[in-house]
Amino acid sequence: MANVFAFAETRNGELRKIGLEAVTAARKIADETGGKVDAFIAGAPGVGAHAEQLAKYGADTVIVVEHAGLEKYNPEALAATVAERIRGGAYRIAIFPTSALGSDLAPRVAAKLGVGLVTDVTAVNLDGDAVIVQHPVNIGKVMATVKMTSQPALIGIRPNMFTPVENPRAGAVERAEPVGDPSASRVVVKEVKLGSSAKLDLGEAPVIVSGGRGLKGPENFKLLEDLAAAFGNAAIGATRVVTDEGWRPHSDQIGQTGRLVSPQLYVAVGISGAIQHLAGMRTSRTIVAINKDKEAPIFKIADYGIVGDLFEIVPVLTAAVKEAKSRG
């Protein structure tokens, strides 16, 4: 019987989707062996309201820690509290999100408990006393199967790998106090800025929409700006030709002599794919190319290509992305 601990991440009092993913993953493992899932949720007073939601996705028990000092991420107080709960709970596995918060929290907890941790996990299985996880290494070019023998084993799950599935349980709420005084933490989050009001930096943007000579002139970059706005989290890039021509500022240049980027999604519009450009973006996770010349080298490295007139395709794509975003 494997009991599983699931850390349900919140931000601003809201439960994050990755929190439901953690519970879903935990439920699946627990069900294999008839174990129990304890979800853990912490935050400012009122955060316990999400217990119901966690129960709906499979938490047998929801441990709720409410404290004004936990309104923002409070790494030291949270690590101490979580470690304490796990220590007292006889869990086989404790699941954390591999998020900015989870990646900070999980190692602290692991060190406090003296147990093993693997983050960015894409699959979890039990094997006798051991836990077997899949974990990409070497920037995702190699997949490692990792065996964990500590009790419990701490796991950080990769976002979007464990699609939340409803699986209602009782979800008994167990209220608990933070360990120590949350207001005495040495590391203090002073401020959180959300939303991309500021222009996203090319190095950090998860999506980059990039334009080349095919755009024909600076005025047509409006098309790309619209597409980037539809993605919401996109920055605009350009090829060397474009910045040389002065259509876009030099700081927008992607390539060997500009910025070297590897976003989740790279949309190359009207870019033929000169070596100097490819050297700067070919490690992007997914590459989409739109170009009228089907012989263009960019299609050789693109995951998905559309051959055709960008002036016709991009507006349609913008509308489709907008729609997909509003649905999902």
Binding site: Q256, T257, L260, I275, Q276, L278, A279
Partner: peptide, 19 residues
Amino acid sequence: PEIQPAFESLEKNGSPWAF
């Protein structure tokens, strides 16, 4: 600054571009 990637690729990959 833009030639640093070329130096680094030459050292690691034996080519001025990181291929």
